[in-house]
Simulated assay, not measured.
Amino acid sequence: MRKNMGNADRIIRIIVAIVISLLYSTHIISGTFGMILLVLGGVFLVTSLISFCPLYTLLGINTCKKKE
């Protein structure tokens, strides 16, 4: 697995995951929509921790800086 996520992308995903979990824990979002967002936040967190997004590979996107 090659890294395909840059630092800015990782930080944004972590922040979004934290915000989603806070909104869910304070019952601002709930129900099926809340669960879907919570799962999405978990995916964002995992992909940012391993610096790899499978969807980026399918779409040919790479936000990681090239090493020279």
Results as ranks from 00 to 15, higher is better:
P54M: 13
K67R: 03
I14S: 01
I12D: 08
M1D: 08
L59Y: 08
I18D: 02
Y24F: 12
R10L: 01
S25I: 09
T57M: 06
L23E: 12
G6A: 09
M1H: 08
E68K: 07
L40M: 14
D9N: 14
F44G: 01
R10V: 03
L49N: 00
V16P: 00
I28G: 04
G34H: 05
M5P: 08
V39P: 07
I12W: 11
T63I: 10
L22Q: 04
P54K: 11
R13W: 11
L38D: 00
L49D: 01
Y24R: 06
L37Y: 04
V39N: 06
V39K: 03
K66G: 05
L38A: 07
H27Y: 08
L38N: 01
L22T: 02
M1Y: 08
I12H: 07
G42C: 13
R13A: 12
G34L: 09
T57G: 11
D9Y: 06
M35K: 02
F52I: 10
V39Y: 08
F33G: 09
S21P: 01
I29P: 07
V46T: 11
C53M: 06
L55A: 15
K67Y: 00
C53L: 02
S25E: 15
V19A: 13
F33Y: 06
S48E: 10
I50N: 09
T57D: 07
K66Q: 10
M35L: 02
T32L: 13
R2C: 04
S25Q: 14
V43L: 15
G31L: 14
N4I: 02
R10A: 02
I14Y: 01
S51L: 00
R10H: 03
F44H: 04
L22S: 04
L55P: 04
L55H: 00
S30V: 15
I14M: 05
G34P: 04
I14K: 01
T26P: 01
M5H: 06
F52G: 04
D9K: 03
T57Q: 13
V46F: 12
V43D: 12
L37G: 01
H27F: 08
L40G: 15
I15K: 06
R2K: 14
H27P: 00
S30R: 15
V43S: 09
N7F: 11
G42S: 14
C64W: 02
L45Y: 10
H27W: 05
G41P: 02
T63K: 00
K66M: 12
M1E: 09
N7I: 14
A17H: 15
T32A: 14
M35R: 02
F33D: 03
I14A: 06
I18N: 03
H27A: 11
S51Y: 06
Y24M: 05
V46G: 07
V43F: 12
I61F: 12
L59M: 11
N4A: 13
M35E: 04
R10S: 05
V19Y: 05
G31C: 15
F33W: 05
L59T: 03
T32S: 14
E68A: 03
R10P: 05
D9W: 03
E68C: 00
R13Y: 10
I18F: 07
L58P: 04
K67I: 00
F52T: 09
N62H: 02
G31N: 13
V19T: 13
